[in-house]
Structures are given as C-alpha cells and as structure tokens.
Design a protein around this nucleic acid. Structure first.
Lengths: 186, 186
DNA sequence: AATTTTAATGTACACATGTTCAATAACATT
DNA sequence: AATGTTATTGAACATGTGTACATTAAAATT
C-alpha cells in the first residue's frame, strides 16, 4: 500500500470527491460503500483494499482539519487559549473562527447518528491545544481531569452553536465564552 | 402498535433480553439485527415492526436510565447541582454515583463507534438537571450557552473517567469536580 | 526498455439489510 | 364465547456487506 503510488493517489482522490458529492445528497450514516464506489467509478474491492467503512474516508478529511485547528494555535501566532482568564480578550480566541471556516464539516461531526469517534478526535485535538498553552503550566490538581473538563466545556458551547445552525458569528461565540469564563473572576 | 398489548410486551422483553446477552459477547456496533432476532426467537419482520436498527433497542434501556438520573436530583432529595459554588460540598454531588451505578451501560455509551445520539441524550439529561436547579435562576447572560457549557464540562470529566476504566470512586470524582469549580472562587 | 512489484479489477459466494404482503394466531373488546 | 383487531410470522426479492482469489494493468525500479 505505497502511499505515494500514483494509482493510490488517484483512487483516493476519486473516493474523496465521491464522498463530498454524496454528502450533498444524504447524511454520512446513510451513504453506502457500493454507492460511494459507483460515484467514484472504482471497484468495490479497491475500496476495501484501503478502507473498512465509509467513515474511514471521512476520517481522512477530518485529520487535515484537526491539523488546521492545531496550526491556528501554533507559533508565531500566540493566540490566547483562554486559560489566562485575567487577560482574556474575545479577539484572541481563534477556535470559533476555525469552526466557522469548516462549518460544513462540523455539521457532519455533530449530526445525529454519526459515530462518536469524530467527537473524540475533535475533543482530543482541543485538549491538545489547551495542554500546549503556556499558561497550562500553572494548573494544579489533577491535570487530565482539568483539561478534559475545560475542553469539553468549550465543545459544549459549540454543540449549542451547532444546534442553532451556526447562526451566531464567531465573534459572538468568543464573547459568550469570555463572558462565562470571567464570571468566576469577581 | 398498542403499547400494552401482551404480544408487544413479550417481544420487547425478548429483544431486550437478547440485547443484554449479545452485549456480553461483542460491542453494540457489531451486533446484527439477524443475530438479535435469532437470540430473541422472534421473526426479523417483527423487529422491523418495532425498530429500525439495533441502536433503537438500546435507546429504550437508555431512556429508563436517564429517568433515574433526573429522579436522583428530584425532590425531596435536593441534592446540590454544583451551580452554587460557594456552598458546594463533594458529598452532595450525586451524578457520579449514578454513573457508577450504571457503569456497564455508560461504558457502551462512551465506547468508540457507537452513535453520538446517546451522547446527546445524556447531554440533554444533564442539562435538564442543571436547568432545574434553584440556583440556575441567578444565571445571567446567554442561558443556553451557559448550561451547554457547564453540562458538557461535567461530561468531559466523565469521559476522562471512562477512559481510565472508571477506576476512580464516585467520591474521588466529586472531589475533582469541586476542586476545579472552587478554583475560580478565590 | 525490460523487469519487477503491486494496486486495481472482475467475479463469486455466504450472509445481512430493508422492504413488502398475504396468512395466521394472539390479544382485547363486547 | 363470539367478534373484531392487529401483532407476528414466513416467504420472497432486491440490494448491500464482507471476504477471497486469480487476472490484469499501471506504476516503480533497474
């Protein structure tokens, strides 16, 4: 399964394209392997040569998007990761802009019936961003629990956002977050 | 589909029993409808008469468990719902005991590959408990966002707990939560 | 350009899904 | 106990899943 074999690159391109096409028609959970292969014009056996299920294809997209999320908090940007509540400013919160950028994809992630695996992948990515924050050094107590608590709290906001059809702007969401976080600081 | 028809009661009993049996053998995601029907000794057509997929059966169990969660915060218990941070005491936090009580089920809920629907059902139940708390009156700002934030934060703790195989005691978890919450109160 | 490697194809098979429908038997109602 | 109702059955059919394997053709290597 040589990753750079032109044949592999081509078929994966076809399947990726086919998935985005099918996603316009129906939810991920109702897209069949057979259907995907027909759209991609590849043999069903070829699909099984690379993947196990439709979700695996989606996962490939997802990995790229998780990289974008992590990158957006990498140097040299030094965006605020909302751990330093005292100096927290809505303008420095980047995560909601990232979600807006990939709104279509996150609509799939959070949609009913899809596997919780995507949720966990997102959860872990957010957690990683938090853990890399310089201010995370100062956290005392059980670290894993704290980061899981905080990461999932942010995602709770995003679930609410999703359920409202992502109508609020990223800026609104940043303000919501800052408002909630500053509450404990009085 | 008369809910109290003895025939319906019987077949549902059989299917419920079959599901618990199958869950001992393999994860929910790999249990086939055909298999479930064979174990339950019912016709496959009968299954489709009541459900669409295996997950729907599991959902029925789940609904009962969500009722238990809500009940555990109903009158006359008046357990603390961690919104009143100042008077928060680990002994009054009930949710982690509820999880421990149904540990096997929550192990399914949080396991990879299962539908995110269960997660949302749990999320909504936790949120409902929070919203019914007397102290929720005092919350200012966007309420939905606040409750989604807080509910999912708790669930973040539980995810971490799950990933550690629920080894910590419910009391440990209550202490973890109180520790995190009190941090902002200094 | 010739050779080696291996991804992709086509075919086949056993089994699962999802739907339909007439016949039956279990149930509720009177 | 007779009646009407409907959940359940069994059978059938088209389609999807998952796996296997020999064949073919595209790509990498020499």
């Amino acid at each position: 399964m040589s990753k750079h074999d032109l044949r592999v690159v081509k078929t994966k391109e076809r399947i990726h394209y086919a998935l985005t096409e099918c996603l316009k028609e129906k939810p991920l959970s109702r897209i069949k392997i057979t259907e995907l292969c027909k759209t991609a014009n590849i043999n069903r056996g070829t699909f099984y040569f690379h993947y196990q299920e439709v979700g695996d294809v989606f996962m490939e997209f997802f990995e790229e998007i998780m990289e974008d999320l992590k990158d957006s908090y990498e140097e040299p940007y030094r965006h605020n990761v909302f751990l330093d509540v005292k100096n927290l400013d809505p303008d420095t919160v980047r995560i909601f802009h990232h979600i807006k950028k990939y709104e279509d994809f996150y609509s799939v992630i959070f949609s009913e019936k899809v596997s919780i695996s995507y949720y966990y992948m997102f959860f872990d990515a957010v957690k990683e961003v938090l853990e890399k924050d310089p201010h995370s050094e100062k956290i005392d107590g059980p670290r894993d629990f704290f980061f899981s608590y905080t990461s999932n709290a942010i995602i709770g906001l995003i679930i609410e956002w999703y359920r409202r059809g992502f109508r609020d702007s990223a800026e609104d969401m940043s303000r919501n977050l800052v408002f909630i976080l500053k509450k404990g600081e009085r």
